[in-house]
Design a protein around this nucleic acid. Structure first.
Length: 607
DNA sequence: AGCGGAAGGG
DNA sequence: CCCTTCCGCT
């Protein structure tokens, strides 16, 4: 369809037969068995290929390309740069970093990347950026774009089943290494399934991740007896689900990095302080009330963790009560303080609700959004003037075009840029999560976040080198923004919630108000952008990157001027999963739903 | 080590 | 589209 079709295709999803390299990488990353080969290391989303040859071998095995080697594999990885799925961590050998800014989970119904076992509950959905946030379709078909298999309503099981199996094995010889396979499959059969899906998939990060866990409503297929039990929320965890170490001793990161935020970007997972609040009911539903609670909890957590204001989720029309905090409290971002507020927000599970209706969980798939458009000139060696004709103007760019906002720099004719992989923009409709802009270098702490700060455009001065080395410093995490409200997308009624302009925005410890979605989105990208912008930008001043940046820059401009421009259209990101809350009618998915998460592994057929 | 163009395959 | 293969340049 118009939108990044390929991204939505099941084939692009984890678990699909046609595995994509990045899915594969993620798969390896989540498996402990491969920790000596490839593992998360460094910054958030950063991973190191410890054994390039082995990774290449595995990849080759999966793709049945015996001739695969790191040189080739790395070429493939480099193509991701343009897609913005990955980027290279400069200065670190064999180290790449996922641009989770661009990756967002889409439809991940219940992703619990948490501990395998337990799985608790899901968290309320956090809209990730898009301008139009859409709630989950009632029927799977809506969710699944076009896949035959996925489309059918009953398909959940089959899908789950398929997804459940996966392994990284060798083509020819039977060297298969799928350790989890059986387990997963077994689980699936029992109706459990997907919950473990993302386990280990992402880099460990802060507790907030759990907050974002989504819960979609998918129930496990027919009432299956739920074997194991869920875990309760960890007492110490602020959110319902706490990342408990998996059986393997590994803890499973829980959510998509894209959604997570953390004050401290360290690899090692650190247990979070506990927060549980009475306020949060144990179960989360997507009705306004619950939503409110959720938001409140979130807000509170933000406070508790001294997170940046940008972390506030802002749902339009919903006013989030301010957490009660004794005085302002720690504006500064230091370590967390001791006694967290109790916040519990476990989600629901009403077992009883009867067999839930059926909601089929949507198998989640990875959605990719096309990279920014923008650089499409390139080909015609000379004539760029007539560009309009040749290059298609994208819709998304449309708004951009409106402007007169041209950045001088941008205005300058972009040199040739290769469009190559960049897919064209997608339409804006859909669940796009686009519109996230980047920029902002973080000045430690939020601060300027407020109105959108403008991006430090590479105005040229060469800067420091790009090593990201110490970037640890900081990084406030960015929160996924909430859906734009105005958009028609909201399906459930939030309207009742009152909103007051004044109050609508939660205030950060520092007194900062909630920033507009757009801004927030922008912020989300900032981290990477920061790196990229500062670093890469310097180096790669000209190049495609530049084009992209420019585009973004324009966008920003627009935003700035226009204030909140609603649609953005912009660039998209790859979405790992977007969580869609269940429609009001079908809520209560409960635990079963949670379990609905599918196993991501891909299958490796014998070649 | 890493980058990215070019061509080709499925 | 998404690599895979080859390759020259840094």
């Amino acid at each position: 369809t118009k939108t990044a079709a390929w991204a939505y295709k099941p084939e692009s999803s984890p678990g699909s037969r046609q595995i994509q390299l990045w899915h594969f990488i993620l798969e390896l990353l989540r498996k402990e068995e491969y920790h000596d080969v490839i593992a998360w290391q460094g910054d958030y989303g950063e991973f190191v290929i410890k054994d390039p040859d082995e990774v290449a071998r595995l990849w080759g095995a999966r793709k049945c390309k015996p001739q695969m080697n790191y040189d080739k594999l790395s070429r493939a990885l480099r193509y991701y740069y343009n897609k913005r799925i990955l980027h290279k961590t400069k200065g670190k050998r064999f180290t790449y970093k996922f641009n989770f800014n661009k990756l967002v989970l889409v439809n991940y119904p219940f992703i619990d990347m948490g501990s395998g076992r337990g799985v608790p509950q899901s968290a309320p959905p956090v809209p990730t950026g898009g301008t139009h946030f859409r709630f989950p379709p009632s029927t799977p078909s809506e969710v699944l774009s076009s896949s035959e298999e996925l489309r059918s309503p009953g398909m959940f099981s089959s899908v789950a089943r398929r997804m459940a199996r996966g392994s990284v094995s060798d083509c020819s010889d039977g060297t298969s290494t799928n350790s989890e396979l059986e387990e997963a499959v077994g689980a699936d059969e029992r109706g459990v399934g997907p919950e473990r899906a993302f386990r280990g998939l992402l880099p460990p990060r802060l507790p907030h991740d759990s907050l974002f866990r989504v819960y979609g409503g998918a129930p496990n297929p027919a009432g299956l007896p739920r074997p194991a039990p869920r875990v309760h929320p960890e007492p110490l965890s602020p959110f319902p689900v706490s990342p408990l170490p998996g059986p393997g001793g590994l803890l499973a990161p829980t959510l998509s990095p894209a959604l997570s935020m953390t004050p401290t970007p360290h690899l090692p997972y650190t247990p979070s302080p506990s927060l549980s609040s009475p306020m949060m009911s144990s179960h989360f539903s997507f009705n306004p009330e619950d939503m409110k609670h959720y938001l409140q909890a979130h807000t509170q957590s933000v406070y508790n963790y001294h997170l940046s204001p940008r972390a506030f989720i802002h749902y339009p029309n919903i006013v989030i009560p301010q957490p009660h905090r004794p005085t302002l409290e720690k504006p500064a971002t230091h370590h967390l303080h001791g006694p967290p507020l109790p916040l519990s927000h476990s989600l629901s599970q009403h077992p009883g609700g009867g067999e839930e209706g059926q909601q089929h969980p949507s198998p989640f798939k990875f959605k990719l959004q096309p990279p920014p458009l923008g650089r499409k000139q390139r080909e015609a060696g000379s004539s760029l003037a007539a560009s309009a004709s040749s290059s298609s103007s994208n819709q998304s760019s449309s708004f951009t075009g409106s402007g007169h906002i041209t950045n001088p720099a941008l205005a300058a004719g972009p040199p040739k840029i290769k469009v190559e992989p960049i897919s064209d923009i997608e339409s804006e409709e859909e669940v796009e999560v686009t519109d996230i802009s980047e920029e902002e270098e973080l000045n430690h702490n939020d601060e300027d976040d407020e109105g959108d700060v403008f991006t430090p455009t590479p105005q040229n001065h060469h800067h420091h080198q790009i090593n990201n080395n110490h970037q640890d410093d900081e990084e406030v995490f960015k929160t996924p923004a909430t859906p734009p409200i105005g958009s028609s997308s909201l399906t459930f009624p939030l309207i009742n919630l009152k909103t007051e302009p004044g109050q609508s925005a939660p205030i950060s410890p520092g007194g900062t108000r909630c920033i507009p979605l757009k801004v927030r989105f922008k912020r989300r990208w900032s981290e990477d952008q920061k790196m990229e912008a500062d670093g890469e930008r310097d180096e790669a001043e000209d190049k495609k990157v530049r084009a992209e940046e420019e585009e973004e820059g324009k966008r920003k401009e627009v935003e700035r001027r226009g204030g909140e421009v609603e649609n953005g259209g912009g660039r998209g990101g790859v979405i790992l999963g977007l969580m869609l809350p269940p429609p009001p009618t079908q809520r209560r998915a409960s635990s079963e739903l949670q379990r609905a998460t599918a196993q991501l592994s891909l299958e490796n057929t014998g070649c």
